[in-house]
């Protein structure tokens, strides 16, 4: 019973991180049909930022100051990446260059991390103490990640259904030609979507910094888990990413707990293959996803 609770709580915590990556995928995917392979390393960069700016025993004040800073910094970086990714798509007939450019961006970030910190894994301490929940000790970053995932879910929902700019991005996802005919500047909004995905992973990486692996080679694992979360829920659906993320988190945590940590990724892979073979459109997905 106690074990199950630990798996559940920790799984939900790390699953929230996957859900956040999944949602950041969706923002970009909905506006341009692109899946950003570098999103995992962007999360790690958010964590690295926390490591660099927070002292070894941080106070709550600086934490609240640097959280938005991390989000904004990553938004700027993602905007640049988005601009570069969209560049060849504007002129060329080859519409799959993003597979390579985003993968290359991921490799570059990993390489830069390797140069600056070697293969070391950085640790960050949370200013918030862990607390007890139903007799289980819960590290604060897990709870905060879950909270952040819910906040972002709400914010994205508001943005896509209320804010004019968000409505315009939704419009692009719903009917690209009709959006252009309505005078919506698609290219700018696609870059903006990249920036928003940066806000999400930048904040997620910062908040979850104490519980994620901040290392040169951990980004790929996060991007895969985020992808699995998004696919299980249905690519493009934020609710799907939220539910899918929590599911992936709990299942992989269960696998890690039962069989050992080295099987965590293998179980996610099996999950991904199972979903793709059985129900490729996911739990909340719409069958035909459109492209750029």
């Amino acid at each position: 019973m106690q074990d199950a609770l630990i798996v559940l709580v920790h799984g939900a915590g790390i699953g929230a991180v996957f859900a956040l990556i999944g949602m950041s995928f969706n923002v970009v995917f909905n506006s341009s049909g692109i899946l950003n392979f570098a999103q995992g390393n962007m999360l790690v960069l958010g964590g690295l930022f926390a490591f660099l700016v927070l002292p070894s025993s941080p106070g709550i004040g600086p934490w609240f100051v640097f959280l938005p800073a991390s989000a904004l910094l990553m938004a700027a970086l993602l905007a640049v990446q988005g601009y570069l990714t969209l560049l060849p798509l504007r002129s060329s007939v080859e519409q799959h260059s993003w597979l390579i450019t985003t993968l290359a961006a991921s490799v570059i970030i990993g390489a830069v991390l390797l140069i600056f910190q070697g293969t070391a894994q950085q640790t960050v301490r949370s200013p918030f103490p862990s607390f007890w929940f139903l007799g289980t000790r819960v590290p604060a970053p897990y709870a905060l990640s879950l909270l952040l995932a819910l906040v972002w879910f709400g914010l994205l929902r508001w943005f896509h259904t209320r804010a004019l700019t968000g409505l315009a991005i939704s419009a692009i996802a719903q009917d690209l030609d009709a959006a252009r005919a309505a005078g919506i500047r698609v290219h700018r909004l696609q870059i903006l979507a990249f920036a928003i995905s940066g806000l999400i992973v930048g904040s997620a990486g910062f908040v979850a910094a104490p519980v994620i692996a901040i290392a040169n080679d951990s980004g790929v694992s996060y991007v895969l888990h985020g992808f699995v979360a998004a696919v299980i829920g249905g690519l493009g659906s934020d609710l799907g990413a939220l539910v899918g993320g929590l599911l992936v988190g709990m299942i992989s945590m269960y696998a890690a707990y039962t069989y050992g940590g080295e099987f965590q990724d293998a179980v996610s892979l099996a999950l991904l293959v199972a979903v793709l073979m059985g129900r490729p459109e996911g739990l909340f997905g719409r069958p035909a996803a459109r492209r750029v």
Binding site: T101, A104, V107, I108, I115
Partner: peptide, 12 residues
């Protein structure tokens, strides 16, 4: 350590 960076940059 720069190898990885080099091939990422070249590909991009």
């Amino acid at each position: 350590v720069y190898r990885l960076l080099a091939y990422g940059m070249v590909a991009l």
